[in-house]
Simulated scan of single mutants.
Amino acid sequence: MYANVLLPTDGSDAAAAAVPHAIELADRYGARLHVLYVADTTEYSTVTFEDDVVDPLTKQGEAVVDDAVEKAEERTVEAVGVVQQGGAYETILEYVDDQDVDVIVMGTHGRRGLDRALLGSVTERVVRTADVPVLTVRENEE
């Protein structure tokens, strides 16, 4: 049923809550798990240090992706980690098309009403516009 499972992550607690669900789904179907971190370049994210441009979001993304891939591999799930730059939901949807993703597993902060409307939501945009099923996992409120 599923050959490619996508786990978009931003390193937040909400995204971390989705990791075991994505790994379980990939394991159950023998699917490849794609862990994607999007360094949002729609906002200023780079700093200059001694004539070198360093993107701290990309470095953070590499650590987040590596951690999720390691957890998947502990369960013997084939996993690939990718860090890309761009707008978050647009990049996720492009990745879905480019990699023939069958299902997306994403965390959600569980915001409602005005709070959600004012802040916007990458997960909400993906749910509304993706051509594949999206499993949303609510952040644990502990």
Rank of each mutant, 00 (worst) to 15 (best):
T9E: 11
D66Q: 14
R32S: 01
V103Q: 06
Q84E: 15
L93A: 07
G86L: 12
V38S: 11
E70N: 11
L6M: 15
Q84P: 12
E73P: 05
Y37C: 03
E62I: 14
L57K: 12
V103N: 11
D67L: 15
V96I: 08
D10R: 01
A26M: 06
V77Q: 06
D102K: 06
G11W: 12
G30F: 01
G87M: 06
A72I: 14
M106R: 14
A15S: 15
L36W: 03
V103I: 01
V105E: 03
Q85D: 12
D51I: 09
A26T: 03
A26G: 02
G81V: 09
R28G: 00
E50A: 09
A14I: 05
A31E: 04
E24S: 04
A31Q: 01
G11L: 13
D98V: 05
V77D: 00
E73R: 14
V96M: 06
V69W: 02
V96S: 07
V19G: 01
L7A: 12
D27R: 07
L93R: 09
E43Y: 09
L57D: 15
V38F: 03
L93P: 08
T46E: 12
Y29I: 02
A18D: 08
P20C: 02
L36P: 10
D66Y: 12
L33V: 07
E70Q: 15
A15Q: 10
H21S: 00
Y29S: 05
G11K: 15
E94K: 00
L33Y: 07
E78Q: 04
A63I: 09
G87C: 11
T42L: 05
F49C: 14
G107F: 08
E73N: 06
D27W: 10
T9D: 01
